[in-house]
Design a protein around this nucleic acid. Structure first.
Length: 454
DNA sequence: TTTTGAGTTGTTCGA
DNA sequence: GTCGAACAACTCAAA
Protein backbone atom coordinates (compact mmCIF):
# COMPACT_ATOMS: atom_id res chain seq x y z
CA UNK A 1 0.00 0.00 0.00
CA UNK A 2 2.67 2.44 1.07
CA UNK A 3 4.98 1.35 -1.66
CA UNK A 4 2.43 1.78 -4.43
CA UNK A 5 1.44 5.18 -3.06
CA UNK A 6 5.06 6.23 -3.19
CA UNK A 7 5.45 5.02 -6.74
CA UNK A 8 2.30 6.83 -7.72
CA UNK A 9 3.47 10.06 -6.13
CA UNK A 10 5.69 10.64 -9.13
CA UNK A 11 4.71 13.01 -11.88
CA UNK A 12 5.42 12.30 -15.47
CA UNK A 13 5.93 14.50 -18.46
CA UNK A 14 4.22 13.57 -21.70
CA UNK A 15 6.19 15.12 -24.54
CA UNK A 16 4.10 15.37 -27.68
CA UNK A 17 5.93 15.59 -30.98
CA UNK A 18 4.24 13.87 -33.88
CA UNK A 19 1.60 12.01 -31.94
CA UNK A 20 -0.98 14.74 -31.38
CA UNK A 21 -3.84 12.54 -30.22
CA UNK A 22 -5.31 10.97 -27.09
CA UNK A 23 -6.77 7.77 -28.51
CA UNK A 24 -4.64 4.76 -29.38
CA UNK A 25 -1.64 6.44 -27.76
CA UNK A 26 0.63 4.05 -25.82
CA UNK A 27 2.89 6.86 -24.56
CA UNK A 28 -0.09 8.57 -22.95
CA UNK A 29 -1.11 5.34 -21.24
CA UNK A 30 2.44 4.79 -20.03
CA UNK A 31 2.62 8.33 -18.69
CA UNK A 32 -0.65 7.89 -16.80
CA UNK A 33 0.57 4.60 -15.45
CA UNK A 34 3.81 6.15 -14.25
CA UNK A 35 2.50 9.07 -12.27
CA UNK A 36 -0.37 10.54 -10.33
CA UNK A 37 -0.37 13.51 -12.65
CA UNK A 38 0.97 14.14 -16.09
CA UNK A 39 2.38 17.29 -17.62
CA UNK A 40 1.56 17.37 -21.34
CA UNK A 41 3.93 19.53 -23.36
CA UNK A 42 4.75 20.47 -26.92
CA UNK A 43 8.09 22.21 -27.44
CA UNK A 44 8.57 24.74 -30.21
CA UNK A 45 12.20 24.13 -31.04
CA UNK A 46 13.94 26.37 -33.56
CA UNK A 47 14.99 23.48 -35.76
CA UNK A 48 11.40 22.35 -36.06
CA UNK A 49 10.24 25.75 -37.19
CA UNK A 50 13.16 26.30 -39.54
CA UNK A 51 12.34 23.34 -41.78
CA UNK A 52 8.57 23.75 -41.93
CA UNK A 53 6.95 26.18 -44.34
CA UNK A 54 4.13 28.49 -43.39
CA UNK A 55 1.36 26.08 -44.38
CA UNK A 56 2.70 23.23 -42.27
CA UNK A 57 3.23 25.55 -39.33
CA UNK A 58 -0.31 26.91 -39.63
CA UNK A 59 -1.63 23.37 -39.62
CA UNK A 60 0.50 22.49 -36.61
CA UNK A 61 -0.82 25.56 -34.78
CA UNK A 62 -4.38 24.37 -35.39
CA UNK A 63 -3.57 20.87 -34.32
CA UNK A 64 -2.02 22.09 -31.07
CA UNK A 65 -5.15 24.11 -30.31
CA UNK A 66 -7.27 21.03 -30.93
CA UNK A 67 -5.08 18.88 -28.69
CA UNK A 68 -5.19 21.51 -25.96
CA UNK A 69 -8.96 21.62 -26.15
CA UNK A 70 -9.26 17.88 -25.75
CA UNK A 71 -6.87 18.12 -22.77
CA UNK A 72 -9.12 20.75 -21.25
CA UNK A 73 -6.49 23.47 -21.52
CA UNK A 74 -3.64 21.49 -20.00
CA UNK A 75 -1.24 21.47 -22.92
CA UNK A 76 1.97 23.31 -22.17
CA UNK A 77 3.33 24.97 -25.28
CA UNK A 78 6.82 26.29 -24.75
CA UNK A 79 9.44 27.78 -27.07
CA UNK A 80 13.08 26.92 -26.63
CA UNK A 81 15.69 24.24 -26.73
CA UNK A 82 14.07 20.92 -25.96
CA UNK A 83 16.66 19.80 -23.42
CA UNK A 84 16.47 23.07 -21.51
CA UNK A 85 12.68 23.08 -21.54
CA UNK A 86 12.42 19.48 -20.38
CA UNK A 87 14.92 20.00 -17.57
CA UNK A 88 13.06 23.07 -16.43
CA UNK A 89 9.72 21.26 -16.46
CA UNK A 90 11.11 18.27 -14.60
CA UNK A 91 12.40 20.53 -11.89
CA UNK A 92 9.32 22.71 -11.68
CA UNK A 93 6.91 19.80 -11.40
CA UNK A 94 9.25 17.39 -9.69
CA UNK A 95 8.70 14.95 -12.54
CA UNK A 96 10.76 11.79 -12.81
CA UNK A 97 10.09 10.55 -16.32
CA UNK A 98 9.51 11.92 -19.81
CA UNK A 99 7.20 9.80 -21.93
CA UNK A 100 7.39 9.88 -25.70
CA UNK A 101 6.36 8.04 -28.79
CA UNK A 102 9.61 6.72 -30.29
CA UNK A 103 10.89 8.33 -33.46
CA UNK A 104 13.09 6.71 -36.08
CA UNK A 105 13.93 9.20 -38.77
CA UNK A 106 17.34 10.90 -38.63
CA UNK A 107 16.30 14.15 -36.97
CA UNK A 108 13.96 12.66 -34.38
CA UNK A 109 16.25 9.78 -33.51
CA UNK A 110 19.25 12.11 -33.06
CA UNK A 111 17.22 14.56 -30.98
CA UNK A 112 16.08 11.83 -28.62
CA UNK A 113 19.60 10.50 -28.32
CA UNK A 114 20.80 13.99 -27.36
CA UNK A 115 18.13 14.13 -24.70
CA UNK A 116 19.28 10.88 -23.21
CA UNK A 117 22.91 11.95 -23.39
CA UNK A 118 21.88 15.05 -21.46
CA UNK A 119 20.35 12.88 -18.73
CA UNK A 120 16.67 13.22 -19.63
CA UNK A 121 14.91 10.00 -18.55
CA UNK A 122 13.07 9.27 -21.79
CA UNK A 123 10.59 6.43 -21.80
CA UNK A 124 9.57 5.34 -25.30
CA UNK A 125 6.21 3.72 -25.86
CA UNK A 126 4.93 2.90 -29.31
CA UNK A 127 5.97 4.38 -32.62
CA UNK A 128 4.25 6.23 -35.44
CA UNK A 129 3.97 2.94 -37.31
CA UNK A 130 2.01 -0.28 -37.09
CA UNK A 131 5.35 -2.08 -37.10
CA UNK A 132 8.35 -0.10 -35.87
CA UNK A 133 11.25 0.32 -38.34
CA UNK A 134 13.89 -2.37 -37.93
CA UNK A 135 11.44 -5.07 -36.89
CA UNK A 136 10.70 -6.63 -40.27
CA UNK A 137 13.75 -8.46 -41.58
CA UNK A 138 14.55 -11.26 -43.95
CA UNK A 139 14.27 -14.58 -42.15
CA UNK A 140 17.23 -15.97 -44.10
CA UNK A 141 19.90 -13.60 -42.80
CA UNK A 142 18.23 -10.94 -40.66
CA UNK A 143 19.03 -8.09 -43.02
CA UNK A 144 16.40 -5.52 -44.00
CA UNK A 145 14.34 -5.78 -47.18
CA UNK A 146 15.21 -3.64 -50.17
CA UNK A 147 12.24 -4.61 -52.28
CA UNK A 148 8.70 -3.65 -51.41
CA UNK A 149 6.64 -6.75 -52.21
CA UNK A 150 8.56 -9.21 -50.02
CA UNK A 151 8.63 -6.53 -47.31
CA UNK A 152 4.87 -6.23 -47.53
CA UNK A 153 4.39 -9.97 -47.15
CA UNK A 154 6.72 -10.13 -44.18
CA UNK A 155 5.12 -7.02 -42.67
CA UNK A 156 1.67 -8.61 -42.88
CA UNK A 157 3.02 -11.84 -41.41
CA UNK A 158 4.64 -9.91 -38.56
CA UNK A 159 1.31 -8.28 -37.75
CA UNK A 160 0.53 -5.43 -35.38
CA UNK A 161 -1.23 -4.77 -32.11
CA UNK A 162 -4.86 -3.87 -31.81
CA UNK A 163 -5.45 -0.15 -31.15
CA UNK A 164 -4.70 0.90 -27.59
CA UNK A 165 -7.54 2.00 -25.34
CA UNK A 166 -8.47 5.64 -24.85
CA UNK A 167 -8.10 6.67 -21.21
CA UNK A 168 -11.32 7.86 -19.58
CA UNK A 169 -9.57 10.27 -17.28
CA UNK A 170 -6.32 12.09 -17.95
CA UNK A 171 -5.03 13.56 -14.70
CA UNK A 172 -3.08 16.42 -16.19
CA UNK A 173 -1.61 19.51 -14.63
CA UNK A 174 -2.66 22.79 -16.17
CA UNK A 175 -0.02 25.41 -16.77
CA UNK A 176 -0.30 28.45 -14.52
CA UNK A 177 1.16 31.74 -15.63
CA UNK A 178 3.43 30.22 -18.26
CA UNK A 179 3.58 27.55 -20.92
CA UNK A 180 0.87 28.97 -23.15
CA UNK A 181 2.98 30.11 -26.06
CA UNK A 182 0.57 29.08 -28.76
CA UNK A 183 2.03 30.29 -32.02
CA UNK A 184 0.13 32.76 -34.16
CA UNK A 185 1.14 31.24 -37.45
CA UNK A 186 -0.97 32.52 -40.28
CA UNK A 187 -1.51 31.26 -43.76
CA UNK A 188 -0.35 33.06 -46.86
CA UNK A 189 -3.14 34.91 -48.64
CA UNK A 190 -5.43 32.65 -50.65
CA UNK A 191 -4.32 29.35 -49.20
CA UNK A 192 -6.73 26.85 -47.72
CA UNK A 193 -5.93 23.82 -45.57
CA UNK A 194 -7.93 20.87 -44.37
CA UNK A 195 -8.97 20.94 -40.74
CA UNK A 196 -6.34 19.75 -38.25
CA UNK A 197 -6.70 17.70 -35.11
CA UNK A 198 -7.65 14.27 -33.84
CA UNK A 199 -11.40 14.80 -34.23
CA UNK A 200 -10.97 15.99 -37.81
CA UNK A 201 -8.78 12.97 -38.54
CA UNK A 202 -11.37 10.50 -37.28
CA UNK A 203 -14.10 12.34 -39.12
CA UNK A 204 -12.12 12.18 -42.32
CA UNK A 205 -11.41 8.48 -41.88
CA UNK A 206 -15.10 7.76 -41.35
CA UNK A 207 -15.95 9.80 -44.42
CA UNK A 208 -13.34 7.92 -46.43
CA UNK A 209 -14.66 4.58 -45.20
CA UNK A 210 -18.22 5.48 -46.10
CA UNK A 211 -17.51 7.06 -49.47
CA UNK A 212 -14.23 6.04 -51.04
CA UNK A 213 -12.53 3.06 -49.41
CA UNK A 214 -14.48 0.39 -51.29
CA UNK A 215 -13.51 1.87 -54.66
CA UNK A 216 -10.06 2.97 -53.55
CA UNK A 217 -8.17 0.67 -55.94
CA UNK A 218 -9.63 2.46 -58.95
CA UNK A 219 -10.59 5.94 -57.85
CA UNK A 220 -7.38 6.84 -56.04
CA UNK A 221 -5.71 7.52 -59.37
CA UNK A 222 -8.06 10.20 -60.59
CA UNK A 223 -6.95 13.60 -59.46
CA UNK A 224 -10.33 15.33 -59.79
CA UNK A 225 -12.06 12.69 -57.63
CA UNK A 226 -11.96 12.70 -53.84
CA UNK A 227 -10.87 9.08 -54.03
CA UNK A 228 -7.82 9.04 -51.76
CA UNK A 229 -7.91 8.92 -47.98
CA UNK A 230 -6.45 12.40 -47.53
CA UNK A 231 -5.19 11.17 -44.19
CA UNK A 232 -1.53 11.95 -44.90
CA UNK A 233 -1.35 15.13 -42.82
CA UNK A 234 -3.26 13.48 -39.98
CA UNK A 235 -0.83 10.56 -40.07
CA UNK A 236 2.18 12.86 -40.29
CA UNK A 237 1.19 14.64 -37.09
CA UNK A 238 -0.05 11.48 -35.43
CA UNK A 239 -3.60 12.74 -35.10
CA UNK A 240 -4.55 9.22 -36.06
CA UNK A 241 -2.44 6.06 -35.86
CA UNK A 242 -2.10 3.55 -38.73
CA UNK A 243 -3.21 0.81 -36.32
CA UNK A 244 -6.56 2.54 -36.05
CA UNK A 245 -6.89 2.38 -39.83
CA UNK A 246 -5.65 -1.18 -40.24
CA UNK A 247 -8.08 -2.45 -37.63
CA UNK A 248 -10.94 -1.39 -39.89
CA UNK A 249 -9.77 -3.02 -43.11
CA UNK A 250 -11.08 -6.22 -44.67
CA UNK A 251 -9.78 -8.53 -47.36
CA UNK A 252 -11.29 -6.99 -50.49
CA UNK A 253 -9.08 -5.79 -53.35
CA UNK A 254 -9.77 -2.15 -52.53
CA UNK A 255 -8.99 -2.61 -48.86
CA UNK A 256 -5.81 -4.47 -49.70
CA UNK A 257 -4.63 -1.65 -51.94
CA UNK A 258 -5.19 0.81 -49.10
CA UNK A 259 -3.35 -1.46 -46.67
CA UNK A 260 -0.50 -1.53 -49.15
CA UNK A 261 -0.34 2.25 -49.17
CA UNK A 262 -0.02 2.21 -45.39
CA UNK A 263 2.72 -0.39 -45.82
CA UNK A 264 4.56 1.87 -48.28
CA UNK A 265 4.79 4.50 -45.57
CA UNK A 266 6.24 1.87 -43.24
CA UNK A 267 8.57 0.42 -45.87
CA UNK A 268 10.11 3.80 -46.60
CA UNK A 269 10.44 4.51 -42.87
CA UNK A 270 12.27 1.21 -42.58
CA UNK A 271 14.53 1.94 -45.55
CA UNK A 272 15.43 5.37 -44.19
CA UNK A 273 16.02 3.92 -40.73
CA UNK A 274 18.59 1.51 -42.16
CA UNK A 275 20.01 4.09 -44.60
CA UNK A 276 19.83 7.49 -42.90
CA UNK A 277 22.04 9.11 -45.55
CA UNK A 278 19.30 8.59 -48.16
CA UNK A 279 17.37 11.46 -46.66
CA UNK A 280 19.52 13.61 -48.96
CA UNK A 281 21.74 11.19 -50.87
CA UNK A 282 21.13 8.74 -53.69
CA UNK A 283 20.02 5.29 -52.62
CA UNK A 284 21.56 4.04 -55.89
CA UNK A 285 24.91 5.85 -55.85
CA UNK A 286 25.61 5.69 -59.57
CA UNK A 287 22.85 8.24 -60.18
CA UNK A 288 25.01 10.83 -58.48
CA UNK A 289 27.27 10.55 -61.55
CA UNK A 290 24.56 11.51 -64.00
CA UNK A 291 24.61 14.85 -65.80
CA UNK A 292 22.05 17.23 -64.33
CA UNK A 293 21.06 20.79 -65.07
CA UNK A 294 21.28 23.54 -62.49
CA UNK A 295 18.01 24.70 -60.96
CA UNK A 296 17.52 28.02 -62.67
CA UNK A 297 14.63 29.68 -64.52
CA UNK A 298 12.96 26.42 -65.47
CA UNK A 299 13.07 25.26 -61.88
CA UNK A 300 11.36 28.47 -60.81
CA UNK A 301 8.69 27.94 -63.46
CA UNK A 302 8.13 24.43 -62.10
CA UNK A 303 7.88 25.75 -58.54
CA UNK A 304 5.35 28.38 -59.51
CA UNK A 305 3.22 26.15 -61.70
CA UNK A 306 3.91 27.79 -65.04
CA UNK A 307 5.72 25.15 -67.06
CA UNK A 308 3.12 25.34 -69.81
CA UNK A 309 2.06 21.72 -69.14
CA UNK A 310 -1.47 21.93 -67.74
CA UNK A 311 -1.46 18.81 -65.56
CA UNK A 312 1.91 19.72 -64.04
CA UNK A 313 0.93 23.31 -63.37
CA UNK A 314 -2.43 22.37 -61.85
CA UNK A 315 -0.67 20.02 -59.45
CA UNK A 316 1.98 22.52 -58.37
CA UNK A 317 -0.66 25.15 -57.77
CA UNK A 318 -2.74 22.70 -55.79
CA UNK A 319 0.22 22.24 -53.46
CA UNK A 320 0.86 25.97 -53.18
CA UNK A 321 -2.81 26.55 -52.42
CA UNK A 322 -3.68 23.62 -50.17
CA UNK A 323 -0.38 22.28 -48.86
CA UNK A 324 -1.39 18.93 -50.34
CA UNK A 325 -1.05 17.33 -53.74
CA UNK A 326 -2.79 14.29 -55.17
CA UNK A 327 -0.59 11.17 -55.21
CA UNK A 328 -0.90 10.69 -58.95
CA UNK A 329 0.24 14.20 -59.70
CA UNK A 330 3.10 14.04 -57.20
CA UNK A 331 4.60 11.44 -59.50
CA UNK A 332 3.84 13.45 -62.61
CA UNK A 333 5.48 16.65 -61.35
CA UNK A 334 8.42 14.72 -59.94
CA UNK A 335 8.99 12.93 -63.21
CA UNK A 336 8.75 16.24 -65.03
CA UNK A 337 11.38 17.89 -62.83
CA UNK A 338 13.82 15.00 -63.02
CA UNK A 339 13.30 13.68 -66.54
CA UNK A 340 12.06 16.70 -68.50
CA UNK A 341 14.07 19.39 -66.75
CA UNK A 342 17.01 17.13 -65.76
CA UNK A 343 17.15 18.63 -62.28
CA UNK A 344 18.27 16.56 -59.29
CA UNK A 345 15.47 15.13 -57.17
CA UNK A 346 16.70 16.84 -54.00
CA UNK A 347 15.63 20.25 -55.30
CA UNK A 348 12.11 18.96 -55.79
CA UNK A 349 12.13 17.16 -52.47
CA UNK A 350 13.18 20.35 -50.68
CA UNK A 351 10.42 22.30 -52.35
CA UNK A 352 7.92 19.66 -51.27
CA UNK A 353 9.33 19.87 -47.76
CA UNK A 354 8.58 23.56 -47.69
CA UNK A 355 5.05 23.33 -49.01
CA UNK A 356 3.50 20.03 -47.98
CA UNK A 357 1.49 19.96 -44.79
CA UNK A 358 1.88 16.18 -44.74
CA UNK A 359 5.65 16.23 -45.34
CA UNK A 360 7.20 13.01 -44.12
CA UNK A 361 10.93 12.76 -44.64
CA UNK A 362 11.00 9.04 -45.44
CA UNK A 363 8.05 9.02 -47.83
CA UNK A 364 9.22 12.22 -49.45
CA UNK A 365 12.86 11.32 -50.05
CA UNK A 366 12.07 7.82 -51.21
CA UNK A 367 9.02 8.77 -53.23
CA UNK A 368 11.24 11.19 -55.13
CA UNK A 369 13.99 8.65 -55.51
CA UNK A 370 11.53 6.10 -56.86
CA UNK A 371 10.44 8.53 -59.56
CA UNK A 372 13.98 9.53 -60.32
CA UNK A 373 14.88 5.87 -60.75
CA UNK A 374 17.54 5.90 -58.05
CA UNK A 375 15.36 4.51 -55.27
CA UNK A 376 14.62 1.12 -53.80
CA UNK A 377 12.87 -0.56 -56.65
CA UNK A 378 14.77 -1.18 -59.84
CA UNK A 379 12.69 1.21 -61.84
CA UNK A 380 12.82 0.48 -65.55
CA UNK A 381 14.90 3.15 -67.21
CA UNK A 382 12.10 3.83 -69.68
CA UNK A 383 9.53 4.75 -67.04
CA UNK A 384 9.18 8.38 -67.95
CA UNK A 385 5.79 9.93 -67.39
CA UNK A 386 4.24 11.78 -70.29
CA UNK A 387 2.61 14.81 -68.64
CA UNK A 388 0.06 15.17 -71.43
CA UNK A 389 -1.00 11.52 -71.54
CA UNK A 390 -1.18 11.34 -67.76
CA UNK A 391 -3.53 14.31 -67.79
CA UNK A 392 -5.74 12.80 -70.46
CA UNK A 393 -5.86 9.51 -68.63
CA UNK A 394 -6.35 10.64 -65.05
CA UNK A 395 -8.15 13.95 -65.53
CA UNK A 396 -10.06 13.22 -68.72
CA UNK A 397 -12.59 16.02 -68.30
CA UNK A 398 -9.94 18.51 -67.26
CA UNK A 399 -11.78 19.37 -64.05
CA UNK A 400 -8.61 19.22 -61.96
CA UNK A 401 -6.78 21.51 -64.37
CA UNK A 402 -9.71 23.93 -64.59
CA UNK A 403 -9.88 24.16 -60.80
CA UNK A 404 -6.28 25.25 -60.31
CA UNK A 405 -5.37 26.91 -63.60
CA UNK A 406 -7.95 29.60 -64.32
CA UNK A 407 -6.13 30.65 -67.52
CA UNK A 408 -7.31 27.36 -69.01
CA UNK A 409 -10.82 27.29 -67.55
CA UNK A 410 -12.40 28.37 -70.83
CA UNK A 411 -11.09 25.33 -72.72
CA UNK A 412 -13.07 22.15 -73.39
CA UNK A 413 -12.04 18.68 -72.27
CA UNK A 414 -10.69 18.05 -75.77
CA UNK A 415 -8.53 21.15 -75.75
CA UNK A 416 -7.41 21.63 -72.18
CA UNK A 417 -4.55 19.09 -72.14
CA UNK A 418 -2.89 20.64 -75.17
CA UNK A 419 -3.59 24.36 -75.22
CA UNK A 420 -0.97 24.79 -77.97
CA UNK A 421 -3.38 23.04 -80.35
CA UNK A 422 -6.42 25.10 -79.35
CA UNK A 423 -7.30 28.32 -81.16
CA UNK A 424 -7.98 30.08 -77.86
CA UNK A 425 -5.36 28.14 -75.90
CA UNK A 426 -3.38 31.19 -74.83
CA UNK A 427 -6.26 33.69 -74.84
CA UNK A 428 -6.19 33.99 -71.04
CA UNK A 429 -2.45 34.35 -70.68
CA UNK A 430 -1.44 30.75 -70.00
CA UNK A 431 2.30 30.05 -70.03
CA UNK A 432 4.01 28.72 -73.15
CA UNK A 433 5.74 25.34 -72.69
CA UNK A 434 9.24 25.71 -71.25
CA UNK A 435 10.46 22.48 -72.86
CA UNK A 436 9.32 19.91 -75.41
CA UNK A 437 8.50 16.64 -73.69
CA UNK A 438 9.44 14.34 -76.58
CA UNK A 439 12.85 16.00 -76.91
CA UNK A 440 13.61 15.96 -73.21
CA UNK A 441 12.50 12.35 -72.88
CA UNK A 442 15.16 11.34 -75.37
CA UNK A 443 17.70 13.56 -73.65
CA UNK A 444 16.91 11.86 -70.36
CA UNK A 445 17.32 8.40 -71.90
CA UNK A 446 20.66 9.49 -73.33
CA UNK A 447 21.91 10.71 -69.96
CA UNK A 448 20.78 7.49 -68.32
CA UNK A 449 22.68 5.58 -70.98
CA UNK A 450 25.88 7.36 -69.89
CA UNK A 451 25.73 5.95 -66.37
CA UNK A 452 24.67 2.47 -67.43
CA UNK A 453 26.64 -0.23 -65.63
CA UNK A 454 29.07 2.16 -64.00
C1' DT B 1 26.47 -21.79 -53.96
C1' DT B 2 23.66 -21.52 -57.78
C1' DT B 3 19.60 -20.73 -60.03
C1' DT B 4 15.31 -18.76 -60.97
C1' DG B 5 11.60 -15.60 -61.02
C1' DA B 6 10.20 -11.16 -60.07
C1' DG B 7 10.38 -6.23 -59.61
C1' DT B 8 3.81 0.03 -57.60
C1' DT B 9 2.11 3.57 -60.44
C1' DG B 10 4.73 3.89 -68.22
C1' DT B 11 5.07 4.96 -73.23
C1' DT B 12 5.50 4.13 -77.92
C1' DC B 13 5.09 1.81 -82.05
C1' DG B 14 3.17 -1.01 -85.32
C1' DA B 15 -0.29 -4.29 -86.60
C1' DG C 1 -9.41 3.15 -81.70
C1' DT C 2 -7.39 -0.98 -79.62
C1' DC C 3 -3.97 -4.24 -78.38
C1' DG C 4 0.35 -6.58 -77.58
C1' DA C 5 5.15 -6.34 -77.76
C1' DA C 6 9.28 -4.01 -76.99
C1' DC C 7 11.86 -1.10 -74.32
C1' DA C 8 18.35 -2.99 -70.65
C1' DA C 9 20.28 -4.80 -67.66
C1' DC C 10 20.45 -5.56 -62.89
C1' DT C 11 19.47 -6.63 -58.17
C1' DC C 12 16.99 -8.88 -54.85
C1' DA C 13 14.63 -12.74 -52.47
C1' DA C 14 13.99 -17.25 -51.97
C1' DA C 15 14.29 -21.94 -53.24
Amino acid sequence: MIESAMVKAARSILWFRRDLRLSDNPALLAAIDAGTEIVPVFILDKSLIKTAGSKRLAYLGQSLRALDESLDGALHVISGNYIAVLKELMQKYNATSVHVCAEYEPYGAARDQKCEDAGIPLVRSGSPYAVAPGRVRKPSDGTPYRVYTPFYKAWCAHGWRAPAVTPKVIPSIKPEGFGREFPEWTLPEGTQLTEAGEKAALKRFKYFQANALDSYDEDRNFSAIDGTSKLSAHLKWGEIHPRTLLAQLGESKAHDVFRKEIAWREFYADVLFHNPHTEHDYYAPKFAQMRYDKPEEKFVAWCEGRTGYPFVDAAMRQMLHEGWMHNRTRMVVASFLVKDLHIEWQHGANFFMEHLVDFDVASNSHGWQWTAGCGTDASPYYRIFNPIEQGKRFDANGDYIRKYVPELAHLSADEIHEPWLAAQGYAQGYAVRIVDHATERLESLARLQEIKST
